[in-house]
């Protein structure tokens, strides 16, 4: 655990100007190491989503730096930034964001398509990812024919398909009943344990946060407490 895989140093982010200025983040420092599972916990409006967007390189901080694998990401621009995001990160969103009319397989291989991988290789890797999430038989179904839990599994398959080092999960169980949610949680933590994929979960769900190695509490744009899981 020499270098953190992803680190934020004194991140500040504000929107608007003058009297309308709103400081979403007021100086957040955070180091995440490879293979960790980290929960970013906070109420809505606390700045946790903004922090995730900055860490996932979807947005630029007003001041402060985000380092990926030890190098400053501010230098990444255009094509290289897109490639980095495509190869390094997987995304799981509460809203699923599946294209309803397209097949499950087509949805899952979207990151590979964006990466410019050929159609045959896409198919093989897409099926492999679906098989891992036990959705192999649903590959040809339309995405909107799936149940909520199946949809979220398809979304995880999509996040996994390009072998990312880090998966960002924004309220991954928010739209699921507790039983289905528990299954999805098991899958995510299984991936973290077995494949060493770094997991960054943004949530306000204390139970989910409790399963992570580390919890970072955010309030009003600042880290209020950081606690490691009590070793069982």
């Amino acid at each position: 655990m020499s270098h953190p895989i992803l680190a934020a140093y004194d991140l500040k982010k504000s929107y608007g100007r003058g009297p309308n200025r709103f400081d979403a983040l007021k100086g957040v420092t955070l180091e995440i190491f490879a293979g960790e599972s980290v929960a970013i916990v906070g109420k809505s409006g606390s700045g946790k989503s903004t922090l995730m967007h900055l860490l996932a390189l979807l947005d630029k901080p007003s001041t402060g730096t985000v380092e990926l694998g030890g190098s400053d990401t501010a230098t990444l621009k255009g094509k290289r930034l897109n490639e980095t995001r495509n190869k390094t990160f997987g995304f799981v969103f509460q809203q699923f964001f599946l294209t309803p009319g397209a097949s499950v397989l087509e949805n899952v291989v979207l990151p590979l398509k964006i990466a410019g991988i050929g159609s045959r290789s896409r198919k093989v890797r897409g099926h492999a990812a679906l098989d891992r999430l036990e959705l192999g038989d649903k590959a040809k179904s339309k995405a909107n024919a799936l149940s909520g839990g199946q949809k979220q599994r398809a979304v995880i398959a999509r996040a996994l398909v390009n072998d990312p080092r880090i998966i960002f999960a924004d309220e991954p169980t928010g739209n699921l009943d507790s039983a289905t949610g528990a299954i999805v949680e098991d899958i995510l933590f299984g991936l973290n344990r077995e494949q060493g994929i770094t997991l960054i979960i943004v949530t306000h769900d204390e139970d989910l946060a409790a399963r992570c190695d580390r919890r970072v509490y955010i309030r009003d744009g600042l880290v209020v407490t950081e606690e490691a899981r009590v070793a069982a």
Binding site: L58, G78, E83, K87, F91, F97, L110, I114
Partner: peptide
């Protein structure tokens, strides 16, 4: 809109 946002998040360039 959301699909476009997702594709961009996944690293699809504006040109594409």
């Amino acid at each position: 809109t959301r699909e476009i946002g997702l594709m961009k998040a996944m690293g699809m360039g504006a040109g594409r």
